Simulated scan of single mutants.
Amino acid sequence: MADTAAPPIAAEDIAVPPAPAEPEYASETLYIQNLNEKIKIPVLKASLKGLFKSYGEVLDVVAHSNLRMRGQAFVSFESADIAKKALKEVRGFPLYSKPMQISFAKSRSDAVVKKLDPSTFDTHKARRLEHKKETRYTNPLKRKFKAKKLAAELDGTSAAPVTKRPNVQMPDEYLPPNKILFLQNLPESVTKDQLMALFSQYPNLYEVRLIPTKKDIAFVEYIDEGSATVAKDALHNYKLDGENKIKITFARK
């Protein structure tokens, strides 16, 4: 009986699964979602700029408080390569306790066009405004709001103007990024060496300062705001003594 064993398979005949595909395009602008909606817009913009500026010049940060844009923002850089690196390394970072969802924006921002292709800026802006005008009330919620507002005006029942809110001091939790962190609720037995060991886990630590007359607070300074932000988000509510949670906020400027 003839030998019917199959011939050996050559290495070049073995199918190799394709490598994961890179995104089809990269933009200079990142589109960020799942941001903490409780953070005030000026604070959120400052936090995003402080976080991303370590990758390169941040041309602009766009965020709005309206219903359509709540929890979203756009961060623009001067090149797509910078944006690509930032997307890869920052995606999922828990800014204000919510992991960021990051993708490339579908179109160039005003800041990018003005910086990289200023001769086309007027045309770009005109197209954007025209698109905004065409789609302004395509959202069902906006149509409903516009109809209610119009009906109220016709009935003479439109709401009274909102009085200006009093000027109050911003809570510690919403202070803009700072390279100096303010620590509260520390164990009174804490030492400078303990805090140095804890915060030196994160790069660019510069100094730790204890307050001799107030042992439950301290200041921790980093070289830049981005490094301080990383340490703050990682160690806020950390139980240094296994019981009490450390409160960490940005120091007031």
Score class of each variant (00 low, 15 high):
residue 70 R to A: 14
residue 177 P to D: 04
residue 58 V to K: 01
residue 11 A to T: 12
residue 54 S to W: 09
residue 241 D to Q: 02
residue 128 R to Y: 08
residue 154 L to S: 04
residue 108 R to H: 09
residue 247 K to F: 11
residue 23 P to W: 05
residue 67 L to S: 11
residue 18 P to V: 05
residue 233 D to M: 04
residue 194 Q to I: 15
residue 110 D to C: 14
residue 77 F to W: 07
residue 201 Q to H: 10
residue 44 L to F: 15
residue 237 N to C: 07
residue 15 A to P: 04
residue 202 Y to G: 01
residue 71 G to S: 09
residue 246 I to D: 01
residue 250 F to N: 04
residue 229 T to C: 07
residue 159 A to Y: 04
residue 121 F to G: 05
residue 225 E to F: 14
residue 57 E to R: 03
residue 155 D to Y: 13
residue 99 P to G: 03
residue 195 L to E: 08
residue 66 N to D: 05
residue 242 G to Q: 00
residue 217 I to Y: 02
residue 149 K to I: 10
residue 227 S to Q: 04
residue 87 L to R: 00
residue 220 V to I: 07
residue 130 E to W: 11
residue 138 T to R: 05
residue 17 P to K: 00
residue 166 P to H: 07
residue 32 I to A: 06
residue 6 A to N: 07
residue 218 A to R: 01
residue 126 A to D: 09
residue 220 V to T: 02
residue 129 L to R: 02
residue 48 L to S: 02
residue 103 S to W: 09
residue 135 T to Y: 08
residue 205 L to G: 07
residue 206 Y to E: 13
residue 176 P to T: 05
residue 47 S to M: 11
residue 47 S to L: 13
residue 90 V to H: 00
residue 214 K to W: 14
residue 103 S to A: 10
residue 147 A to G: 03
residue 115 K to A: 15
residue 195 L to S: 03
residue 186 L to M: 07
residue 241 D to P: 07
residue 55 Y to M: 04
residue 151 A to V: 13
residue 36 N to R: 02
residue 84 K to S: 14
residue 8 P to R: 02
residue 22 E to Y: 13
residue 106 K to H: 09
residue 163 T to N: 05
residue 133 K to W: 07
residue 10 A to M: 06
residue 183 L to E: 01
residue 80 A to K: 05
residue 172 D to S: 15
